[in-house]
C-alpha cells in the first residue's frame, strides 16, 4: 500500500515537540469528551492516526485495538503508551487513505483529530467505510471549520500557516462524511461549532 511521503515527513518533524504542544493543556481540556466518546468502544476496533498515543489513557480498559499512524517517529513514541495500556493495542504504520485491511474487517472505527491532517479527507473516509462492517460505527473527535463569524474568519486566516506545520483548521468534516455516504447520527459541540464529537454509521450494504 502506498504511503503519502510528504504527509509522513511533516508528521515525523512534528513528532519531536508533539507531546509538549498537544500533551498538556489541550489533552486535559479534551480528556472528558474523549473518554465519553471512547466509552463506546466494543468489538474489533480500528483507531486512526494514533500519533504519540496521547489518547490511549482515555480508552476503556480491556479493549483490543488496532492503531495506525503514517509517521514512524510518532509510532515510536506511542509504543510506551501502548505497553502501559491495560488491554491490547497493535501499532501499525499506515496511510488513512490507503488501508491495508480487508473489506468489512472492523466493527467500529475511532478518530481523534485525524481528518484535519488527511490530505484527501473524502478518500480517507471512503477507505474507512470500506474496512467497516456494513452498518458499522465511525466515531470521531475532530476540530472543524466554524460557521460563526468572526471565528470562521480567524480559522481561515490561521489555516495557511497552520497547514505548513500541522493540521488544517477549516475542514468541513460533516459535509465530507455526507460525500463518503456515512449517515450522521449525532454531533456534540464541545467548543463552539469547532471541536466536536461526531457519531456516524456506514451504509448497511
Amino acid at each position: 500500500m502506498a504511503i503519502d511521503t510528504k504527509t509522513r515527513d511533516k508528521w515525523d518533524r512534528a513528532a519531536t515537540f508533539f507531546d509538549i504542544s498537544a500533551g498538556l493543556g489541550t489533552e486535559k481540556r479534551w480528556e472528558p469528551f474523549k473518554k465519553a466518546l471512547f466509552s463506546h468502544m466494543d468489538g474489533d476496533i480500528l483507531f486512526m492516526a494514533a500519533g504519540t498515543g496521547l489518547d490511549f489513557p482515555c480508552f476503556p480498559p480491556g479493549m483490543t485495538v488496532t492503531a495506525i499512524d503514517i509517521s514512524p517517529k510518532m509510532l515510536e513514541k506511542a509504543k510506551i503508551r501502548a505497553i502501559n495500556y491495560q488491554g491490547r493495542i497493535d501499532l501499525l504504520e499506515m496511510d488513512v487513505q490507503s488501508l491495508a485491511f480487508s473489506d468489512g474487517r472492523f466493527d467500529q472505527v475511532f478518530t481523534s483529530c485525524t481528518f484535519c491532517s488527511v490530505p484527501d479527507p473524502v478518500a480517507g473516509l471512503m477507505e474507512i467505510r470500506r474496512v467497516l462492517k456494513p452498518g458499522g460505527m465511525l466515531r470521531m473527535f475532530e476540530h472543524t471549520a466554524s460557521g460563526i463569524f468572526p471565528f470562521n474568519l480567524m480559522l481561515h486566516l490561521m489555516n495557511p500557516i497552520s497547514r505548513i506545520f500541522g493540521p488544517e483548521v477549516t475542514r468541513d468534516t460533516l459535509n465530507n462524511l455526507d460525500r463518503a455516504r456515512f449517515a450522521i447520527l449525532k454531533v456534540e459541540n464541545h467548543f463552539l461549532d469547532v471541536v466536536r464529537s461526531i457519531h456516524a454509521k456506514a451504509p448497511e450494504m
Partner: peptide, 26 residues
C-alpha cells in the same frame, strides 16, 4: 490578529488549542 496568533502559541500548551487560539485572536 497577528499578535493574537503569536500570543496564543505561548498559552496553548497550558490551556488548550482552539479554545485559546480563537478568543485570543478575537
Amino acid at each position: 490578529i497577528m499578535i493574537g496568533m503569536v500570543t496564543a502559541l505561548g498559552f496553548m500548551p497550558f490551556f488548550g488549542a482552539m479554545e485559546v487560539m480563537l478568543p485570543v485572536m478575537l
